[in-house]
Structures are given as structure tokens and as C-alpha cells.
Amino acid sequence: MRFTKLSLVLLILLALVVPASYAQENENEDQGAGLTIGFSQIGSESAWRTSFTEAVIAEAAERGINLLFSDAQQSQENQIAAIRAWLAQGDVDAIILAPVIESGWDSVLQEAADMGVPVIIVDRNVNADESLYVTRVSSDFVHEGRLAAAWLVQETSGNCNVVELYGTVGSAAAEDRHTGFAEVIALFSNVQIIQSQTGNFVRTEGKQVMASILSSTDPSTICAVFAHNDDMAIGAIEAIKEAGLVPAVDILVVSVDAIPDIFDSMDAGETNATVELSPFMGGPAFDAVVAYLNGEELPKWIPVGGGLYTSRADYDADR
């Protein structure tokens, strides 16, 4: 019985890893030098977002792309205004849009399509007609949740009571990571989410929620914490330590994002695993622009990143 379950896990892992590695293969000789590309970013609300912006700017500089950068400061109106300004000037070859929300993009995307300017959506999704944009480059949050669950099932041989630290309720990252995680553990009757509470992706709240749960539940019944991001995991680790338990030993810790701090925590032996949320979406997005301008057919979704790492060395080896 156990063998079939383990092989099932391995099969899931294989199914998850293959498309992820496929996405990384696109090393192109045509890098897009001389193109002018507009990039409308959501803002700078988190450290991850900042490193995402920096990665795009660095990638453009390396390729010799003339990047017009616009920070929308969380406002869709600003994004639409920036796109219209680029279209009006008529000198952009393509537009990369990191949309702040999903809805309300049809008319401006239609304007871009009418002008013949290709639009690539990065990070979050839009619910506009697929014909209005070239492709979408983003992380697969469901895949991240599945990977974390698969690792946990494998590590505990399918026996685990999990505390889930939920991200901001309603955000795609939180909902999809939960969906992916729940999907995989549903296959194993002895793996259950015994508590699920939101820490809003924040460190302090992650700590407070975990401390509350450890006070009200017998800690020996908790086998692992699955946090929807690394910050909440780091907070939870503090709570676990304060409760006199050893994180990553008494209670396993697995989370998503792969921020630098989580690798410090891994070095200290306090975190078990993290799933990467890649900030390196610039490269695949620029590749998509080049491929489109060369007349190639592209899939409507190009997933990026999403490896699971259990040590800093593994992560560095992939960079």
C-alpha cells in the first residue's frame, strides 16, 4: 500500500517538474536588442515585487532593450494611462503589463491590438479575451501548492497533521496555493489540514497565528506547517521556538517564495523546504516578444519558476 502511494507521489513530482524545466529551455540567440518595450508594473508593495522590477530592468539592460518603465502605484487608472501614452507616442514595439487587478482591461488591450502593438501579461492574470494579448508569463500558484504537498507527503510517508498559514484571503496566490495543496493531500487519508488561518502574508501575523494555535492545540499533534509565503513561515518559526519546540524537527516547515531570508533560516536548520516564486519573469517575457515578432506561434500561458528547494546550495545551483 505504502509503495503505491509513494510511487503516486513520485509520479506527481515528475508531472510537476517536467513542464517547469521545459519552460526554462528557451535560450534564444535573438535577444531583442534595439527594441523599445514598455513595462507597466503594479508598484513596490513588497520586497518580492521590488526584486521582480529590478530583475526585469537588469534583463533589459543586458539584452540592449530600451525599456520604458512605469510604476502604477497600485492603480489601474495609472496603468491604463501609461499604456495609452505609449500607444499615442507610437514608438513602442511591445508592452509588458503586470496588471494590478484582473478585470477592466478589454478596451485598452483592444486599443493596443488595433495599433498592432503586442501585449504580454506577466504575473497576475487578466480576464480579457485571449486574442487581445500574445501570452501570459506567470507563476503557477496551484503548482506551487501541489509541490509543497507532494514534498510533505513524501517526507512524512503520508502521515501528517498540517497547520496551514493562509495568505490574504481572496488573493489568487493564497487561494491557488491552497487548492493545489488540498488537491494532493486529498489523495492521502492520513494527511489533513487541522487548522487553517490567515496571516495576510505578514511575518508578525504568521507568528501570532502560530502562537495561538500552539497554545490551543496539543503541539505534539501538529506535524507540519504549510505557509503560503516565506514571511509567515519565518514568523511561525519564532512562535515554534518560543513554545519550546524545535522548528523543522518537531514541526516541519514548508513554504513558498524562496526569499533570501528563508535560506538563512534553512542554513540554521529551521526551515525544511520552500517552493520558488520566480521574480525572473523578464527573460521569458522578452523571449515571447521576440518570438512573436518573428512570427512564431506561442501558447497562451508560459509558466515560470516553481522548483522546490531544501537547501541554499540547491537553489544557487539552479541560478
Partner: peptide, 14 residues
């Protein structure tokens, strides 16, 4: 809030 944290209510209800 602490009551909510230790409850088994789904976070959407918070």
C-alpha cells in the same frame, strides 16, 4: 482575533 485563530472557521469569515 485569537478566538478566530484557534477556531476552525475558514479564514474568509474573519
Amino acid at each position: 482575533l485569537v478566538g478566530l485563530y484557534v477556531s476552525t472557521l475558514h479564514p474568509t469569515t474573519n
